[in-house]
């Protein structure tokens, strides 16, 4: 018995050695600092198979976490980052990123023009958009019809008939931004007075909220527990995938949008690898591969042309193109961030 076990062990060891032998040594490494769950491992494997460049990925769960890390550790060895639009300017000011030569990225041509040349990076000198997240309103068509509610404006979320029927993101920026857009025609997102003036609106909204949940709000929507959700498009997409009654509606106010972009760091050891990688991601087949796994907002028009009905027919994944162009880019509010948090706490504690 013991002998056979030993033999088995030796065989396992040999097999393990044999398997590691299959993978050739990479010609180089690319250090990617990315959001968690944003690019599947298969994509990295395919990239290495093709180019011999191994992608070494570290992950973060907030832009602030990434920024703080780069700012403290000046000897970081990340080559490529995937920051949201509103931190690009800070990265530029801190001299942490370098200009990108899009001529070396032929697939840049596939990127949706509506997200190019935005205020955060005129002419896309420093950044190449990757994917986006839009905050949308998901509704249960049957439930809101039964309640007699129609949602055309964010203010319709305050309808008393929706009591206990809304799930909202548990996020001060998203909620206060919604309140600002609903109550002020052209809001100043950094004004303390304007931010504080949203409290009554938020308290009205709270009466209708069944739960504030950023982790899995889709489950409440998909299981018919609530009629309306102010959620990320990916949550709406997941709920739609599970429940036919769910749909996305757009209001007179624009949606919130966060574009995540590839940037190359100042410290990058091999710019050529970085360019190759960004170009690889924007190849339609590769981009489709990613969307099949993580159905965010597609910013690659060539990929859109080859995506299947599962993505295209899902109003949560495949958001309206006009709405995408019209959406408000969540901006950097600097010091005003604390007012958002304070008003959010006030709303919750009440």
């Amino acid at each position: 018995m013991k002998k056979s076990l030993a033999v088995l062990l030796v065989l396992c060891l040999l097999a393990a050695v044999g398997m590691t032998g299959c993978k050739p040594k990479p010609i180089g490494k690319l250090y990617l600092y990315n959001w968690t769950e944003y690019i599947p491992q298969d994509v990295f494997d395919l990239f290495e198979e093709e180019t011999g460049i191994r992608v070494v990925e570290s992950t973060y769960s907030s832009n602030e976490q990434m920024l703080a890390k780069l700012d403290i550790d000046k000897d970081y060895d990340y080559d490529v980052l995937v920051p949201s639009s509103y931190v690009i300017e800070t990265l530029k000011e801190k001299d942490l990123i370098q200009p990108i030569n899009t001529a070396n990225i032929p697939n840049f041509a596939n990127v949706d023009p509506s997200v190019l040349n935005r205020d955060f990076d005129p002419g896309n000198q420093y950044s190449v958009p990757y994917m986006a997240t839009m905050t949308v309103i998901a509704v249960n068509r049957e439930k809101i019809a039964n309640l007699g509610v129609e949602i055309q404006s964010l203010n319709d979320l305050l309808d008393p008939r929706l009591e206990g029927q809304i799930v909202c993101l548990d996020d001060s920026r998203e909620l206060v931004d919604a309140a600002l857009k609903a109550t002020i025609a052209e809001p100043d997102y950094t004004s303390k007075e304007q931010i504080e003036s949203t409290l009554p609106w938020l308290l009205e909204l709270k009466k209708n909220v069944a739960a504030f949940d950023s982790d899995s709000p889709y489950s409440l929507i998909a299981s018919n527990e609530v009629a309306v959700g102010l959620v990320y498009n990916i949550d709406a997409g997941q709920a739609i995938g599970e429940n036919d009654a769910i749909d996305v509606v757009y209001t007179t106010e624009p949606c919130e949008l966060a574009i995540d972009n590839f940037v190359i760091t100042k410290n990058a050891k091999n710019v050529e690898y970085a360019e190759k990688f960004i170009d690889f991601i924007h190849r339609p087949e590769v981009y489709k591969m990613i969307l099949d796994e993580f159905p965010g907002v597609c910013l690659n028009n060539a990929a859109l042309a080859i995506l299947g009905p599962e993505y295209l027919d899902n109003a949560g994944s495949n958001v309206d193109k006009d709405e995408l162009a019209r959406a408000h880019l969540t901006s950097d509010v600097g010091d005003a961030g604390q007012y958002y948090d304070e008003i959010f706490n006030k709303m919750k504690a009440d």
Binding site: S62, R173, K206, V209, G337, D341
Partner: peptide, 19 residues
């Protein structure tokens, strides 16, 4: 349900969110 506020959550958000 996130409709109430506890002190641990306030502290967490000072470090991990836009506050």
């Amino acid at each position: 349900g996130g409709t109430d506020l506890y002190i641990g959550q306030v502290i967490e958000r000072q470090f991990l969110s836009e506050a």
